Computed example of a mutant assay.
Amino acid sequence: MKTLTEKSALKWFMALPLICSIDATQAVTIRYVATDIANTTLTEDLWNYTYFIDDFEFQKDQGFSIEFDLEKYTSLKNPLAISESDWDPIILQPDISASLNGLYDVLALVDTPSLTSSSFSVDFVWLGGGTSSPGEQEFSIYDGNFQTIASGATLPTIPVPGTATLIFLALIFGRRKMLTNF
């Protein structure tokens, strides 16, 4: 006779493939990697953001903007889009006197520009202090008329275990649980 614990474990194991296939993310995801890079002066804390976009198919004249809070960032530079023939990146500096956040803006130059191998990056000076590091930022995706069609916050790039890894862990956990019940 199966115990309640064995039945529960079996149900979870049977539901695991379904759970792994559910996409709980927002419709458009912009992920980032923040990298502390070598400082060129003692008074500036230089960093780099590299961005990756998921779940959106851009058309010509659509683009995205990522905000740089004027109290946390300054000296935005080196805006890059790996596929320069598909994308046009620009930066607008944060302006304290006008109370304007900075922007990293990238415009699609062609329909369906490549995202699979493209990443986008920008260097900046972090004003958050030595004990903190840059984090999520607000973004918007706009159409050819510069109307916002999606928005959200960037997410850190965190390795997510694949389905096979999750099944393997479930088997180990289930096996261990059965052995401790005897």
Rank of each mutant, 00 (worst) to 15 (best):
M1V: 07
K2T: 12
T3H: 12
A9I: 15
W12Q: 10
W12Y: 11
F13D: 04
F13Y: 15
A15Y: 09
A15E: 13
A15Q: 10
P17I: 07
L18G: 07
L18F: 13
I19N: 05
S21Y: 06
A24W: 04
A24L: 12
Q26L: 01
A27L: 05
R31G: 08
R31N: 08
A34D: 04
T35M: 03
T35F: 06
I37C: 05
A38M: 09
A38K: 14
N39S: 15
T40M: 11
T41N: 10
T41V: 13
L42A: 15
E44F: 06
L46P: 02
N48Y: 01
Y51F: 15
F52S: 09
I53V: 15
D55Q: 07
K60F: 04
Q62G: 08
Q62F: 08
F64N: 00
I66K: 03
I66G: 02
I66A: 04
E67K: 09
E67H: 09
D69A: 06
D69Y: 05
L70V: 05
E71H: 10
E71I: 05
Y73L: 06
S75L: 06
N78S: 12
N78H: 08
N78C: 02
L80H: 05
L80Q: 08
A81S: 14
I82C: 07
I82M: 11
S83N: 15
S83L: 14
S83M: 13
W87P: 04
W87F: 13
W87T: 02
D88N: 15
I91R: 01
D95E: 10
A98K: 14
S99Y: 13
L100D: 12
L100W: 01
N101W: 04
L103C: 00
Y104L: 09
L107C: 04
L107D: 09
L109V: 00
T112H: 14
T112I: 12
L115V: 06
T116G: 01
S119Y: 13
F120A: 01
V122L: 06
D123W: 04
F124G: 03
V125G: 00
V125W: 00
V125H: 03
W126T: 04
G128V: 05
G130H: 11
T131Y: 10
G135A: 12
G135T: 13
E136P: 07
F139N: 02
F139S: 00
Y142P: 01
G144S: 13
N145H: 11
N145A: 14
Q147F: 07
I149K: 06
A153C: 07
A153Q: 14
P159N: 06
V160D: 07
P161K: 10
G162L: 01
T163V: 07
A164F: 09
A164K: 08
L166F: 11
F168H: 00
L169S: 01
L171H: 05
I172A: 11
R176G: 00
F182L: 13
